[in-house]
Design a protein around this nucleic acid. Structure first.
Lengths: 195, 195
DNA sequence: CCTACCGATCGGTAGG
DNA sequence: CCTACCGATCGGTAGG
């Protein structure tokens, strides 16, 4: 009972913090702000969390894991590079849209992590990007994709997707698949050798 | 003489603030931090600037103006939509790379502007995006570009470019023209109706 | 441009 | 989960 209440409260704190970090930024959000929205005193937050930064760590590494796992599943499949790229983008968009507030925090507040966590975080991000880069390189070897700067293209691709939650509000909501379809249509059809 | 010293000092303050805002974020940068790097006391900053936010305003609206003016010049030219898009992207990348620190602050710290400035800022940004959207719509009317969600595509395009300074460090530095060439090659060749 | 200082607010702890 | 409180730091002003 106590444990269940605690877990719920902890999740409630993290969820509200995610929302506030997204709206105001990590540094500009105070623990008193956060406590006020929850309806308790600031000091009481520390019964559930160790520190302000622990909340940020939870958000960032949860998202990093989600992105990572979704991509690892696709890597194992036997697919051509362009099919793999499309699936990877769909999967990326799915994770992104499942919790767009947490994603926004993940993408723009990670630099406030302390050194050791920052190191791990950047290593994971690099690793993730490299998997995409490999797909493009494979695609070139297979004769499907043009010769290009794969890193440049991957970062352009991921950037164009990642910032969508904060810029693009479609009236009729698009599904992750439709969003991914739009993005990959532009990118893949631009990358494919015209036959 | 006094005036000249003051102007130089003011610019020095803004330049250093730009660098710190980019690295640590606006909220996490203190006036004492900033003063320390300049080599004066925090209180002395206020002989040159009115407030911390004034610095952010200066950075954001300077960049907004630069982007805006560069695009307005191109709008007046008589060009086909795909040529115009390419020129607009080159121009955008030129402004972006001329001061990448200020650009980074412009793109990620604008939300810390107070309400009335924020309103102006968002109006300008919207206006800027609409000019790009119009180019894509014109391109569709001219029969050069596919049917598409123009807003979606513009935001994807601008996002992929805008976040490049923070993600992509080419060993041999690319010129703005080469960067724009890479980006528009992917986008335009993806957008063009294949004949 | 500095010294001296202001009130406000920060993240967090002690003890219950 | 609260009261009471800590030392540190914040943006900024007064007066020279």
């Amino acid at each position: 009972m106590i444990t269940k209440t605690k877990l719920n409260r902890k999740q409630q704190i993290i969820d509200k913090a995610t929302q506030l970090f997204q709206q105001q930024g990590y540094a500009a959000t105070s623990m008193r702000d956060l406590a006020g929205y929850i309806g308790i005193e600031a000091a009481s937050l520390y019964s559930h969390i160790k520190s302000k930064e622990e909340i940020l760590q939870t958000i960032c590494f949860q998202m990093a894991n989600d992105f990572f796992q979704s991509l690892e599943k696709i890597e194992l499949e036997k697919l051509s590079a362009d099919e793999k790229l499309k699936k990877a983008v769909i999967s990326h968009v799915q994770v992104l849209t499942k919790d767009s507030a947490a994603s926004a925090v993940f993408f723009s507040e990670w630099r406030h992590l302390s050194d050791s966590y920052l190191k791990d975080f950047l290593a994971m991000r690099n690793n993730y990007e490299n998997k995409f880069i490999q797909i493009l390189i494979d695609g070139h070897k297979e004769g499907t994709f043009k010769k290009m700067d794969a890193k440049f293209t991957v970062l352009a691709l991921l950037s164009s997707i990642n910032w969508m939650p904060s810029w693009y509000k479609p009236e009729g909501k698009l599904t992750p698949e439709e969003i991914a379809e739009n993005v990959t249509d532009v990118f893949i059809n631009g990358l494919k050798i015209r036959s």
